[in-house]
Design a protein around this nucleic acid. Structure first.
Lengths: 345, 345
DNA sequence: CTGTTAGCGCCTTCAC
DNA sequence: GTGAAGGCGCTAACAG
């Protein structure tokens, strides 16, 4: 039996071999060439089973751990996909990350996370750093990026998905829905039910702003103006919903419907209303936005625009993977949304 | 003016240089050697300002993007830190990731994310893949890992933080608190207030189980047994809280207090109670666990065990960074917890 | 099926 | 302050 030079580390649980073995070490132990080890590990079907076994034994013996940094450099394939988003504290974003991560991990890719806090300059810095890792794909949030960000991504010739939006000129691919259309749908929904004094409670998110524009445009067509507009600082929280509702009531005590930029906010509005003895939906309608399972379980259940964050994550990841495999991929994918009426309107 | 070979890409916005420039290309344009470019970019203080300027100009001109893969291989410093956790859908975990990510990004590191869905075998696979990237640090969740995971991490000689727990034998470093103590604190809190028929509603999380053990042990000391124990499948949701409460009431209609494994669950319990006309806290006490700002804003406000996820993230990240800079770091950091009484007990 | 050769792009170590 | 040589660990391309 070969005696490879193998340092060990004394720990509570006994001796542990210190990883430092390279492909060459494994090859020496297995009595084959380095490239054969590489193939036995990465494309075993190209190697005789017998040889594969010898290599696996040698891997065990040496405690070899593959070095993907070296692999990535040699092959220009990093097996890394970057996700860039404003925050993961919003449930729909968390759902998306979870789904994208699961999908990519299953396909043998690893996820790099970049959080921009809704700030374009941070996103720009993140993208710059991210590209220096030569990711095989980048998934961004929304369609608002600095020119520099767009240029860099294009120059990098890396598959890019802009998620959560649908506009005519993507950097590369887009997976999402039209926020203006969401606004229109809400307008129609409320008008059909005879609501007139409609207020908006939103955080400072550019996509929420676009939904609000859609809503206002939709209402305007029927001669209705928004009764009150309350913009809150990020991030969207339950407490903010309660505070925002209080502010809204102060400026417009006879409001009939409140449209919120998130379910979290809407839940706060609901709670504030109930705490004040306002009956929902008899005296007040509340509309949320998101994908929280609790929207169906609040008391009373919340009407909401449902968008499937997990699906967006899955589709975005798949778009990257398809592109990497050379498959043709549409540049615009509409994941749609659903206006669900429940107990609050 | 040098005419470097520079391919361009025709896009909607005009011509964009295709990144493909290397250090050597930049060096050629700047009229210096590659190593000088490297220094001008990474340790400018070692290079004459004049030279730095020339290099920066050449970088602009060539559209050079640093290749950290090559850099990592040559220097054995990846500037990558891995976060491994069960899910990011739980608000306290999301807070932790946000804080750790912010801290690491500010220090020039990038974050790799691994989600294990509370499954040890997934964590094991993740750690294996992660180590092949040669991260400069790894932050895990909890203290329950397979032997193989522990061994691999030790062998890799990489700084490791196990977050969210505090047990006597860390792999390397630990940042968290004792879940048994949380249970004890809750027991004491409830007993002092005269509660006798105490029920537990929890998801299948090993740390929640440890809190429950602490609670049961604390109660047992005073001769009190748990009136009902309801374990729900993961993940913890608002809806699950309502369902769990319903189940609890079915098996124990006269329950006086419900202790939940998360605020989300507790909020569901609260809501179910209110929907049934049960008065909180007059007829029922509810205790949550977490760091949600809404715990203070539910109706009525929720008593909860507050743990600061953001702080855990920050401290864990800092522990990794300190270790990388050769500073001495304690292996056990107790981040503590706070039992906050509000309107629900 | 397996091996040889030749880099990938950068940084370390030493020299000047 | 700047440069030359060599190598980090792996894989592409081509032989055999």
């Amino acid at each position: 039996m070969d005696k490879t030079e193998m340092r060990t580390l004394r720990t509570a649980g006994g001796e542990v071999p210190v990883s430092g073995a390279t492909l060459a070490d494994v090859a020496r132990v297995a009595g084959v060439s380095p490239i054969t080890v590489s193939r036995a590990l990465n494309q075993p079907q190209l190697v005789r089973p017998n040889t594969v076994a010898k290599v696996q034994a040698a891997v065990q013996q040496t405690g070899y751990v593959k070095n993907m940094m070296a692999g990535a450099l040699a092959s220009s394939r990093s097996r890394l996909v970057s996700l860039v988003l404003p925050t993961i504290s919003t449930p729909i974003f968390a759902d998306m990350v979870q789904a994208a991560s699961d999908h990519l991990t299953a396909a043998g890719y690893q996820v790099m996370l970049g959080l921009s806090s809704y700030e374009a300059w941070r996103e720009e810095l993140l993208v710059e750093t991210i590209l220096s890792r030569r990711p095989d794909g980048v998934i961004l949030t929304g369609s608002l990026h600095t020119d520099s960000t767009r240029r860099r991504l294009q120059a990098a010739q890396v598959p890019v998905v802009e998620a959560w939006d649908l506009t005519p000129s993507p950097i590369d691919m887009m997976v999402g829905f039209s926020h203006e259309e969401v606004g229109h749908a809400i307008a129609q929904h409320l008008l059909e039910r005879g609501y007139k004094r409609i207020a908006i409670l939103a955080v400072q998110d550019p996509r929420a702003a676009r939904r609000n524009q859609g809503l206002q445009a939709g209402l305007a067509k029927h001669g209705v103006e928004v009764a009150a507009l309350q913009i809150m600082p990020l991030p969207s929280t339950f407490a903010l919903g309660r505070d925002g509702m209080a502010a809204l009531l102060a400026s417009c005590p006879d409001v009939q419907a409140v449209v919120c930029s998130s379910d979290t906010l809407a839940h706060g509005v609901l709670t504030e209303a109930i705490a004040r003895g306002i009956k929902v939906p008899e005296q007040l309608a509340v509309v949320g936005f998101g994908d929280l399972s609790f929207a169906a379980h609040t008391y009373p259940p919340l009407s909401t625009v449902r968008v499937d964050g997990a699906n967006i994550g899955r589709v975005a990841a798949q778009a990257i993977l398809d592109r990497l495999e050379g498959k043709a991929v549409g540049s615009l994918t509409d994941t749609g949304f659903q206006l669900l009426q429940r107990g609050s309107t």
